[in-house]
Design a protein around this nucleic acid. Structure first.
Lengths: 121, 121
DNA sequence: CAGTATCCTTTATGATACTG
DNA sequence: CAGTATCATAAAGGATACTG
């Protein structure tokens, strides 16, 4: 009786997109793929991210079971973030996207320029 | 002299994410992957999308050179949308993501429940 | 170092009415 | 059918100050 289509509001695809379709999530996952890393290291690596968004995005990823947070009781405290096994499976599917961006974004930019010259005044 | 890291504000990955990280783009690409389709067909298939967002998202995809728009001069007019070859290459990299969602989102939902029971309350 | 809290601006999205 | 225009709201993101 349920709608069989994968585009229903509650389908897994929609759920996933609602979670990762933001400015920083995919970028973070991709960075964490290189191994465990500390909060301020991430902050320095990702140009332009605010402390608030880094913290918020990491907490969401932790809640989703995609990222593990490990507190090391140094003084001051050190916190290390890493992918969980589940997070690794997701990151592996995201990786080709990064590669696509590197090889095809220039074509997209060209298409935009063409569109703006023709379809517009 | 440029920052060599792929997380710089202007890197292709950031550009791509800024473009597709919204509520509907990936979903639309995935649907268009099944073949050419008309405006209102898309609208009916994607539960919850507004006319405005469908129109707006399609135009952006067209501008990016990812989707082709074909006007068929019937009365009233028919408009058919389809992936361009460039759009097809992107959609192929996105496809595994849909599959990941179908097989792993239940694990994510479980993780969320666990997190909410422990890290909270 | 690794955050939280608060305020504020921008962007994204939605509802509704209208058109060739 | 396939849109556009306008108004309104919600959600995302950023700046800044503060804390164990």
């Amino acid at each position: 009786m349920d709608a069989p289509n994968p585009y229903a509001a509650t389908c897994p695809t929609r759920q996933l997109l609602d979670r990762i379709a933001d400015k920083w999530t995919v970028l973070l996952l991709s960075l964490l793929n290189d191994g465990p890393i500390r909060f301020n290291q991430l902050r320095r690596l990702i140009e332009g991210i605010s402390q608030k968004m880094l913290s918020q995005t990491l907490r969401k990823l932790e809640r989703d079971g995609l990222v593990a947070r490990k507190v090391i009781p140094t003084v001051p405290v050190t916190v290390e973030y890493s992918l969980t096994p589940l997070g690794e499976t997701l990151t592996r599917t995201i990786d080709p996207l990064i590669h696509w961006a590197e090889t095809h974004m220039s074509a997209v930019n060209d298409a935009q320029k063409l569109y703006d010259r023709t379809a517009r005044g």
